[in-house]
Design a binder for these strands. Structure first.
Length: 473
DNA sequence: TGAAATGTTGGGGCG
DNA sequence: ACGCCCCAACATTTC
C-alpha cells in the first residue's frame, strides 16, 4: 500500500507563508495541493469578471511557487473530492476556513461527509485576526457598532496569532488528472482585462512587494493622507487580502513593529473594519440582500436605467463621481474616499437601490468581497447596523475640493475637462460659457451635462427618508 | 468616515 | 473718533 497523503485545499488563502492549513498538512508528509473552482455552490455570488481575472493570475502564481504541483478542478467539490479519494490513499484534508454563508454551508456538509468516510478534516483560521464568533458583547450578543466592536471586542481579545513561516522541504505531489489552468476559463473572451495588468502584481510575492511600497511611501502619513485619492497613502492591499495572498496577521504584526502609533494604529483599525464586515456577515447571513434596518424595506427607490448606466460608465456630469467610476473601470479599483462619494451619489442623489451599486462593484472590483462589499453599501445607504445617518449626504463638489484640492485625481481620469481651472473643475456646470469655450469643454458633447440637480435631488432624498418615519415599525 | 442653516465675531469702509 | 453696516470667517446647531 502506498503512503497516505494529506490534501491541502486552497481557497481564499493563495499563499505559502502564514498558511496554517498548509503548515499542518506539511507535517503529515506528502501533500496534494488542490484548488476547486466552485461556481455551482456560489450561485449568484460566483466571482465577477474582475475577480476572475485576478484569480486566474493568482492561481498561476501559486502554482509556480508550488513547483507546478497545484491541481485545479472545476465543479462540485464533494464530487471532485470523492474522485480524488478513489485514486489516492488520503489520510486527511486540511483547509483554512471561509466565512461567506454559502461557503460555510458547503464546507459544513463536506466536513460531515468526509467524516463518514473516515477521512480526517482539519480546519484553521487563515483569513481573520479574530473569529467572528469570539468577538461578542458581555451579554453574548454580537456588536452592532464599529467603535466598541474594535476597541473593546477586538483590542480586548487575545493578540492575533503571529504569522507562520513558509513550510520548507514539503513533498508536494500532483494529480495527473488535474485540469489545465487555462481550462478553468477564468479570463474573458474579449481582451478588456488587459487594461488591468499594468496596475497590479498578482500573487503572494506581488502582495509583499505592494506592502513594502506602502510601508515606504504611504504609512508614515496614513491617517490623513488616506483621504486624498491623488496621494500614495492607501495600501491598495484589498485584493491581495481578499484572495489571501497576504494575511491580516502578517500585516498586523509587521505594522505593529514599525512604531509611530497614530499612523499604524489607524491602519490596524482599517483591518478592524474588515473584521467588522466579516462579523456582520457571519451574524447576519442575509446582509448581501436584505436591509439590516427593515424600515428601509419601504424606502421609495427610483428605477432609472439611463441614470444607472451613466453612473456605471462615469458619465453623470459630476467630475468627482465620474473620475471614481472611471478609475474603477480602468483599474479594477477605486480609492476608498471616492467609493463613499460615488456610492452616496448613486443611493441618495440618484436614489437607486444600493443593490445596483453592490452588483456593479461585485463585477468590476478586483477586491470584490462579499462581506466588505455588502457591509459598505449598507453603510453608505444608511440601512446598515452601524450605518452613516441617512441625512449624511456627500456633496461631490465639496468632497472634490476638499480631498482633491489640486484636481490631480479628476484630471487624470477625465482628461476632457482637464484644462478647466480649479475653480470650475469640480462643477463645470457653474462655469461661464466663455470659460468653457476657452477650456475646450462643451457640456452635453465633450463632457455630459449633469444627470441630476445636486440640490434638488438631495432634498428629494431627505424627503424620501422622512416618509419612513411615518407609521410605526 | 457631512452638509447646510443659523449664530457669532471682528475688521474695515463709510458717513 | 465714533457708530453703523457689511460680510468674511469661524463656531454651533440641525437635519
Amino acid at each position: 500500500m502506498m503512503e497516505k497523503i494529506a490534501i491541502c485545499w486552497f481557497r481564499q488563502d493563495l499563499r505559502l507563508s502564514d498558511n496554517p492549513a498548509l503548515t499542518q498538512a506539511a507535517k503529515r508528509g506528502r501533500v496534494l495541493p488542490i484548488y476547486i473552482l466552485d461556481h455551482e455552490s456560489a450561485g449568484k455570488y460566483a466571482a465577477g469578471g474582475a475577480s476572475r481575472w485576478w484569480l486566474h493570475h493568482s492561481l498561476k502564481a501559486l502554482n509556480a511557487s508550488l513547483g507546478d504541483t497545484l491541481s485545479v478542478y472545476r465543479g462540485n467539490p464533494r464530487t471532485i473530492l470523492d474522485n480524488i479519494l478513489s485514486r489516492f490513499e488520503v489520510e486527511a484534508v486540511y483547509w483554512n476556513r471561509c466565512y461567506e454563508p454559502w461557503r460555510i454551508h458547503r464546507d459544513t456538509n463536506i466536513k460531515e461527509y468526509l467524516k463518514t468516510r473516515a477521512i480526517g478534516v482539519h480546519t484553521f483560521n487563515g483569513s481573520l485576526l479574530w473569529e467572528p464568533w469570539n468577538i461578542k458583547k458581555e451579554d453574548g450578543s454580537p456588536y452592532k457598532v464599529f467603535t466598541p466592536f474594535y476597541r473593546k471586542g477586538c483590542l480586548g481579545a487575545d493578540t492575533p496569532r503571529a504569522p507562520l513561516p513558509k513550510p520548507g522541504g514539503v513533498n508536494y505531489i500532483s494529480d495527473t488528472s488535474r485540469m489545465d489552468m487555462d481550462a478553468l476559463d477564468l479570463l474573458p473572451e474579449t481582451n478588456w482585462d488587459k487594461k488591468l495588468e499594468p496596475h497590479w502584481s498578482v500573487g503572494e510575492a506581488g502582495a509583499h512587494r505592494r506592502f513594502e511600497a506602502f510601508a515606504d511611501e504611504g504609512l508614515h502619513a496614513y491617517k490623513d493622507g488616506r483621504n486624498f485619492p491623488a496621494r500614495p497613502h492607501v495600501s491598495r492591499l484589498s485584493p491581495h487580502l481578499h484572495f489571501g495572498e497576504i494575511s491580516p496577521n502578517q500585516l498586523w504584526h509587521a505594522v505593529r513593529s514599525m512604531g509611530d502609533g497614530k499612523q499604524t494604529d489607524h491602519f490596524c483599525s482599517e483591518l478592524g473594519w474588515r473584521e467588522f464586515s466579516y462579523s456582520l456577515l457571519y451574524h447576519h447571513p442575509e446582509l448581501p440582500r436584505k436591509n439590516l434596518q427593515s424600515k428601509f424595506d419601504r424606502f421609495p427607490w427610483a428605477e432609472n436605467a439611463d441614470c444607472l448606466h451613466a453612473w456605471q460608465k462615469g458619465q453623470t456630469g459630476v467630475p468627482m463621481v465620474d473620475a471614481g467610476m472611471r478609475e474603477l473601470w480602468q483599474t479594477g479599483y477605486m480609492h476608498n474616499r471616492v467609493r463613499m462619494v460615488a456610492g452616496s451619489f448613486l443611493v441618495k442623489n440618484l436614489r437607486l437601490h444600493w443593490r445596483h451599486g453592490a452588483r456593479w462593484f461585485w463585477d468590476t472590483l478586483v477586491d470584490a468581497d462579499l462581506a466588505n462589499n455588502s457591509a459598505s453599501w449598507q453603510w453608505i445607504a444608511g440601512c446598515g447596523a452601524d450605518a452613516a445617518p441617512y441625512f449624511r449626504i456627500f456633496n461631490p463638489v465639496t468632497q472634490g475640493r476638499k480631498f482633491d484640492p489640486d484636481g490631480g485625481y479628476i484630471r487624470k481620469y477625465i482628461p476632457e475637462i482637464s484644462s478647466l481651472s480649479d475653480q470650475y473643475l469640480f462643477s463645470p456646470w457653474e462655469a461661464p460659457d466663455s470659460i468653457l469655450r476657452e477650456s475646450g469643454v462643451k457640456l452635453g458633447s465633450t463632457y455630459p451635462k449633469l444627470v441630476v440637480d445636486l440640490k434638488n435631488s438631495r432634498e428629494a432624498a431627505l424627503e424620501a427618508f422622512q416618509s419612513l418615519k411615518q407609521s410605526n415599525s
